[in-house]
Write a protein that binds this DNA or RNA. Sequence first.
RNA 1: GGCCCAUUCGUCUAGUGGUGAGGACACCAGGUUUUCAUCCUGUAAACAGGAGUUCGAUUCUCCUAUGGGCUACCA
Length: 503
Amino acid sequence: MSDNIRVRFAPSPTGPLHIGGVRTALYNYLFAKKNGGTFVLRIEDTDQTRFVPGATEYILESLKWCGIEPEEGPHKPGEYGPYVQSERKEIYQEHIQQLIELGHAYYAFDTPEDLEKKRQEEKEKGNENWQYDSSTRNQMYNSLTISKVETQSLLNQNTPYTIRVKIEPEQIVNFHDLIRGLISIQTNVLDDKVLFKSDGLPTYHFANIVDDHLMQISHVIRGEEWLPSTALHQLLYRYFGWEAPKFAHLPLILKPDGKGKLSKRDGDKMGFPVFPLNWTNSEGELYPGYRENGYLPEAFVNMLAFLGWNPGTEEEILSLEKLADTFSLERVNKSGARFDPDKTKWFQQQYFKQQSNASILQSIENQIPKHNYTIQQLEEICGLFKERVEFAKDIVPAAKYFFEAPQSYDDKTVQKKWKENSATLLNELSTKFQSLHDFSAQELEHAFHGFVSEKEIGLGALMPVLRLSLTGEGSGPQIFEIASILGKEEVLERIATAVAKLG
RNA sequence: GGCCCAUUCGUCUAGUGGUGAGGACACCAGGUUUUCAUCCUGUAAACAGGAGUUCGAUUCUCCUAUGGGCUACCA
């Protein structure tokens, strides 16, 4: 085996990839980058009944959006292809034959109904733990209990069969998990798992180890749900006489509240996406995605990276490159991490604030209504709002008064701030503004302050009223910046309208 | 039920055989701001429990509890 670091992300295309899957992909990517290795994508579609069209494309697009594209995969074949398991049937056939010849696997002719019946019977006898294993296989209908001739005859007649692993009892399987340390499991508790289904396709366990071996995967980084079956995988490597890759089992991502691992239900229940991208299922139901909800991929990735890992410093805002620099499996936590939508928003906010006005503008260009602003003015508007909203898509709605004079005025503010003399004061202020040659925010502010002290009134008596007349709202960005961008003509007009409407 | 894994503020976590157990999010209170947001400062907030090892355990061991995962011809 070579010393090259090769890792893989091996999702099954049964629907949209959820954020736990994205994080697994991310850690694989980070580990590969950190160690100068290769990140491979393999599609595990051996369960044809659960295959969902479009899922593979969704996975690819999600990884691309996150900036963690695999270097090898169905989209980018390398020398270890094909990268889709349903295209590797012959390979599995060959290998399962090998295993049978080695005496580590056998044909089983029990039908699903037979097995169900058996389980039921055992349950009635009080045996809840019945399994197809070294202690029970000699009571079942398989190539170990019938003659060779009989087996061959059944096979010739195309009798449906599965192929099961023949677990050797009374052994201890020890393996070292890069995150959890030594784990040891007694083979007696293992069952004779089906390796090949009656549809002629391998199960996960078999396809997985064959492919990992053939694709020269050096490190298997996957979710904790695979920890119990790793013993079986170790055994399989042993039976084949192959060197097993190193394993690292990642902690699960748990629900924000309550119990259990994060599921797609939690998303709509609690109002946050559980998927990277929007997904519409065959019933037309929409599952929202982070991308369409306005999250920046950098923020999403940063948040995910910190769910179960940290660099050991107090830095929290790290780019993908920085994450790859500092990543190590040793610093991955052992216990499950509860997902925190609040913290996710915070990451988004951090990245959003850092964006240049120009790039924010670019991302909302097609939302902007008709206007007469210059590009520079539009960028200024973005700048005014980027610390006030969390998502680019919220800017245009928040800045609506830049594109349309207020149709109404915020009731609460009117009641609180609009006084007897407001109209008179505004009119006079308007006259003062009219005489300005330089309509910059600084000049406007200067003029305003001059006016206020001249009149011997407080800022609070006029400022909110001015804001109300220009925006219709009681709060928002610095009013002189707004006025400056709006321009003299528009400002004077809006003041006049407000005076007319509010008296 | 069986097997495996885990357990530090509400949440994500740092950390060590002797610490004032640190940070972040959220929360609350101040400050800045005409306002809102941002920003700044601060408060409150944790080693699951019990044994053992030890001069000393949050840290090491064991037990219990709790949580999680697996237990399919699904991955």
